[in-house]
């Protein structure tokens, strides 16, 4: 039987959740036996080539490109999982949500104490995706089926959730796997 396909992406995240996924160590060999990776930074496949069973989303949406990627994932994946606190709640990038966008950009590109920007311009290359008025958690943009909390979720939590999902069993995430202090 053909192996189910998994896609992953990091939107407004720090790749920490992907690092945590790699932290499953030698179990990654088992994972490869269980699934094929499609579009993902892990194998550097840039575009979807087939319909996927599962999409793992790291990070929320801070710009229009994030939205397009997330929508693309929704269209190509049967199940979408928000992985980590940024995808689930916006996380650290969402701190800017309390400030007007102009203040954020001015601080980052014009007024910040370490800024050296003689042109006095805010970067505006057409290649740069436009930034959103605030950072959105993924479930405010598309339907999300499951959430795995954590910053990042531990490798064991990701492993437990993924293997349960792939084997069609109810996921058992004991308290220790979701406790972070």
């Amino acid at each position: 039987m053909e192996k189910p396909k998994v896609a992953t992406t990091s939107l407004a995240g720090c790749f920490g959740c992907h690092m945590s996924l790699l932290d499953i160590d030698e179990r990654i060999l088992q994972l490869i036996d269980l699934v094929d990776f499609n579009k993902s930074p892990i194998n550097d496949i840039k575009t979807f080539t087939a319909r996927c069973a599962v999409g793992l989303i790291e990070g929320g949406c801070c710009n229009e490109e994030n939205v397009h990627v997330l929508q693309l994932f929704r269209e190509h994946c049967d199940i979408l999982i928000s992985v980590g606190d940024c995808a689930t709640m916006g996380g650290i990038p969402a701190w800017r949500n309390t400030l007007p966008l102009k203040e954020c950009l001015d601080e980052a590109y014009l007024n910040g104490p370490t800024v050296h920007n003689p042109s006095g311009l805010i970067p505006n290359d057409p290649e740069l995706p436009l930034i959103l008025n605030k950072v959105y958690p993924c479930h405010e943009v598309v339907k999300i089926d499951y959430f795995i909390p954590g910053c990042p979720p531990s490798a064991d939590a990701l492993w437990a959730a993924l293997t349960a999902l792939l084997s069609g069993k109810p996921v058992d995430l004991p308290y220790e796997l979701l406790k972070y202090d």
Binding site: H68, R74, L101, N133, K143
Partner: peptide
């Protein structure tokens, strides 16, 4: 929504402020 997108999310409204700040329309 036919594609399971969230009907309450409005991309056009979400980028409007940035469009004003950088002075170009979203091409996407």
């Amino acid at each position: 929504h036919p594609k399971n997108f969230d009907p309450s999310f409005d991309l056009r409204a979400a980028v409007a402020e940035a469009e004003g700040l950088v002075g170009r329309k979203s091409a996407a």
